[in-house]
């Protein structure tokens, strides 16, 4: 196609670039899981050695941490509990477990409640949550933690 007189080193073919990019694209599309809930509290997880990977399928998250600015006006309390996408009180946990298990079609005993608790939280608050979970018969729990290297 070229009408050049003398042949130089041909330009590198970039025709396969879209293919490569597409491949990467599909990989990331498949690997992506969109975050379903916006965080309303910041829970800096503690570190631990003896942790296991958790199966996402039957996992229900409860966040406990410092409320982010937007929702902290009337809360003198330094710790908030987030269930799904709103901050709620300890007393709401039983209803939350009931609703979540109903939508998942599981029994409360089949789910694992992942407690994402801020490392500066007090044990008293955690105990109150655990008591509610016991009342709701959600007995499998996990303390979310980061791997300690």
């Amino acid at each position: 196609m070229a009408k050049k007189g003398k042949r130089e080193v041909p330009a590198m073919s970039t025709s396969s670039l879209p293919d490569i990019v597409f491949m990467l694209l599909f990989f990331f599309m498949a690997a992506t899981t969109m975050r379903e809930v916006d965080p309303l509290v910041t829970a800096q997880l503690p570190k631990a050695h003896e942790i296991t990977e958790l199966d996402k399928k039957n996992l229900v998250n409860i966040w406990m941490g410092k409320p982010l600015v937007s929702s902290s006006e009337d809360k003198g309390d330094a710790l908030a509990i987030q269930l799904n996408d709103k901050t709620q009180e300890v007393g709401d946990i039983q209803n939350f477990i009931g609703a979540t298990t109903a939508t998942k079609g599981m029994e409360p005993t089949q789910i694992v409640v992942n407690l994402r608790v801020d490392k500066d939280a007090t044990v008293g608050k955690l105990t109150a949550v655990k008591q509610e979970l016991r009342k709701a018969n959600a007995l499998s729990i996990s303390y979310a933690a980061m791997k300690n290297e």
Partner: peptide, 18 residues
């Protein structure tokens, strides 16, 4: 940018029944 590759890790426990 949107991909988070993190896996949930934690320490499993079983609570006694209420």
């Amino acid at each position: 940018v949107t991909t988070t590759m993190d896996v949930d890790t934690g320490m499993k426990r079983t609570l006694p029944p209420w």
